[in-house]
Design a protein around this nucleic acid. Structure first.
Lengths: 266, 266
DNA sequence: ACCTGAACACCGTTCAAGT
DNA sequence: ACCTGAACACCGTTCAAGT
């Protein structure tokens, strides 16, 4: 349904993956962006097939209609390709977070919607998710172009801005009262840490019998409940069935994504 | 004071870095282990000097008294070296966690002590900390020897066993009552996620203006307070000055480490 | 101005020879 | 049995030539 190359009827639900949102591009610039997207699709497919360890620039060139030199016009190094895939992931996350924001519910339910989005993304795009983790690594960062690092920063700030809006709503609705010494930033940091940490560990469950043993189906929601309860964000998990909220969010906002994940399992 | 090679009076405070704890080794096995440790010290120093991107097997060999072939007797690949450094990190963390357990205080204070240990480790050994993050990456895992992956798993399980003991104490002292649907495992997972996530993001602050902006000095403790409050672990942060507890832990248990970090800042 | 792919150089990795 | 380092092979990266 949402294959590597396929887009549902041009709606670009899953394909808004380049940064052509605010600026109008010349035809040539657009062509270059399209080619970069094309190359990244190829790179991702290669990783799916042969793993990160076997990804080579040669293979990317061979699997594309372009030459090695052209690949290097887009990416300064192999690691830069991974970072570019990571930035695609962020772009996709941004669009999912935007969608999560539209969930019609209490402020805390909107936060849960954001975490649903984050978790679904990790399942829809496991490879891109890995790229986000990998691209946070000095190994990769050190060989990523400064331009792309700056771009990743911009995307991250955009993500933070979206979450910021949701947290502001919690405050204005008085569902959340900032505990002493806490700021909106620290709330964002707590959410980000928990989401990133849970996700990173779960991604590695396949490699770590230890993590796999700890893991249960609802451990993500549990972590989020613990955290939001700790902030005193109303209604508390003891008073409200967030498991059901999670399901409603999946059905109302992310039904396409859930359906897609179901096809993956087969 | 605790330099790369130096150990304080043979006490091996910082140097218990190989897995020779339960088994007695022959003289030859011991020599091989010592050499592996020697090589890892060299590798770490090279990363400090020239970064991860410039680490090569040639340089490790050149900086050591051994040949390339011997390096490959210890490590199956360059990535295997990174994983080996990651396992050193885990070994060091285990010893710090053991020490954290000795803090004489309430059950929740002991949990804080563990997080202090984790945080101090990240500051004492930033490179090894990065190696833990990097070695959780498919890029590195795919080229790590199965034996080392199994070893890392063993170490992780040991870490979990230590934290398990602390959480059991919380339950037996009735400071912690498991909320419905929660198990000890989910408590461990929440703590691990939060600690790993916070740490990973902070490690990357240097590269991400976004994270740097969010960060404040006490954001780690704040995250932990939120999480433990959310579990209802008594006494709550509103009733107890955990900032002061953090300081006491640093003074009572980790004064050497704190002093060492102070020397780094200069 | 951009693309090409042969050529280069730099490692990662191996293995025959040595001890 | 283990160590050595020359040799190999495989990329990552560049750049002179082509369009």
């Amino acid at each position: 349904m949402f294959g590597v190359t396929g887009c549902k009827g041009g709606k670009k639900l899953f394909c808004k993956l380049t940064d052509n949102r605010s600026t109008t591009l010349t035809k040539k610039q657009q062509a270059i962006e399209d080619r970069e997207y094309e190359l990244l699709v190829i790179a991702k497919a290669l990783v799916v097939e042969e793993g990160f360890a076997n990804l080579t620039m040669d293979k990317i060139a061979a699997a594309s209609p372009y030459s090695k030199g052209t690949i290097y016009n887009h990416f300064t190094s192999k690691e830069d390709v991974i970072s570019a895939l990571g930035s695609q992931a962020l772009l996709h996350e941004i669009s999912l977070f935007r969608r999560a924001q539209t969930y019609d519910g209490l402020s805390r339910e909107k936060v849960v919607a954001m975490h649903v989005a984050y978790h679904l993304f990790a399942r829809i795009e496991p490879i891109l998710s890995m790229c986000v983790l990998t691209s946070r690594t000095p190994w990769v960062i050190e060989k990523t172009s400064p331009e792309r690092l700056a771009y990743i920063n911009r995307l991250e700030e955009e993500l933070v801005a979206i979450t910021d809006a949701i947290f502001a709503r919690g405050l204005s609705s008085h569902d959340l009262t900032l505990p002493e010494g806490m700021t909106t930033d620290s709330i964002i940091f707590a959410n980000w840490s928990m989401a990133f940490g849970s996700n990173a560990l779960i991604n590695n469950a396949a490699n770590s019998s230890c993590v796999a043993r700890i893991l249960q189906s609802q451990s993500i929601l549990m972590n989020i409940n613990i955290m939001l309860d700790g902030m005193g964000w109303l209604p508390l998990s003891s008073e409200h069935d967030y498991q059901q909220v999670w399901q409603h969010i999946e059905e109302d906002i992310f039904s396409d994504e859930v359906a897609y994940i179901a096809t993956l399992k087969r």
